[in-house]
Design a protein around this nucleic acid. Sequence first.
DNA 1: CGCGGATTTGAATCTATTCAATAAGAGTGG
DNA 2: CCACTCTTATTGAATAGATTCAAATCCGCG
Lengths: 218, 218
Amino acid sequence: MRHLCVPEGLTAEETGKLEDVISATRAVRRGDALFRAGDAFESLYAIRSGSIKTVVSREGGREQVTGLHLGGDALGLDGIGENRHMCTAIALEDSSVCIVPYSSFERMCRESGSIQRRLHQMMSREIVRETNQLTTLGSLRADERVARLLLDLSARFTRRGYAAAEFTLRMTREEIGSYLGITLETVSRTLSRFQARGLIDAHGKLIRIRDFAGLRAI
Amino acid sequence: MRHLCVPEGLTAEETGKLEDVISATRAVRRGDALFRAGDAFESLYAIRSGSIKTVVSREGGREQVTGLHLGGDALGLDGIGENRHMCTAIALEDSSVCIVPYSSFERMCRESGSIQRRLHQMMSREIVRETNQLTTLGSLRADERVARLLLDLSARFTRRGYAAAEFTLRMTREEIGSYLGITLETVSRTLSRFQARGLIDAHGKLIRIRDFAGLRAI
DNA sequence: CGCGGATTTGAATCTATTCAATAAGAGTGG
DNA sequence: CCACTCTTATTGAATAGATTCAAATCCGCG
């Protein structure tokens, strides 16, 4: 199922319809953009494999990472409102996405209540995800932010069938800092401190969580 | 139109259908909750009059303001994903909302493409609004955050037909700080500094913007 | 008019940033 | 495959910005 980007809970017929709508897939190489802020909005995307960051450019050429999307996540929901994308999506590693033309998808939503419900759930969850990120940026100290990111990633990898305790950060320290609203130096220092306290093993981008309870307690 | 919470761009027939769905209105007194995190999700809401904050409770009883909603704004989109509300909505002043039962609304979306599109746009714009707030919390200094809030409120009041330069903050300094990820003292100090520089007139909650360009330049 | 919450302001403290220098890796071409 | 280079990461020291704690004032409301 996963490789078709099809969510569970649909009838065979609905699944068939969805497959018709998912017209194609696209490979995105590490560093390449799936879409850019300002691009005309045509399609939604679902990540088949790999990982993709979304960034918003702020005046002065500075960019902020606003989202971190893994396999199975939807991408492009921000474009519906104004018919053009409001952020830029860049692959953190060689990735592959399903392309879901929005007009066909919209039509399908009218035909199938389950599919409509799926879309609404996807969008609602995206809203909740961002609300959570708002609380991270709005009220946590740097070490709490980093701990929360590690635990979040661990949970998301687990749900995808990967190891809970060991994973590769696909982002640089700078991108992590941008996502967490802190500087790259603070990210680095915090990871070092976590390592010194025996909470994690960090070898560059490879992270192993040694003490989940300890991380949660921060 | 506004008092029926009906968005523009619909045919008369569609407007009629919408009016059928909007079953009732509800008055919410200042300080009262429209819904609370954990409540079963039944309805969406549109603000008829007044203003409402959304807050998320963090462990330790601390609350963070994650949204600030004015007349015409939708509320409750966060509940769709898990069938229960994920945040608490509290009136900042005596307010009135339209109640839109979600099940009927969902059905209507299947019958009318325009209405469906409206809902999708609403949700997408909510995502973009939160993305913007993420960039505020993630990369701006305290004075930039306050300036951005004032300009944002000014723009939103303007769109609603009120004066651009003068408005009443319905939130306390503490709520503003929570929304902006800074302390109430910093909010107060920043407003004082803006006043000293001739950018605004602030008398408690009443704000008059004297120098838009100056605020934007911060 | 008086009370209690809200706001303002000051001073000390602390966290995170900035600047800087070094080290470690990743990628490239010989 | 190795040397070279450029990017990324780590760490230190000084600084800046925001927080915390505290006290005084303001204001709305009963």
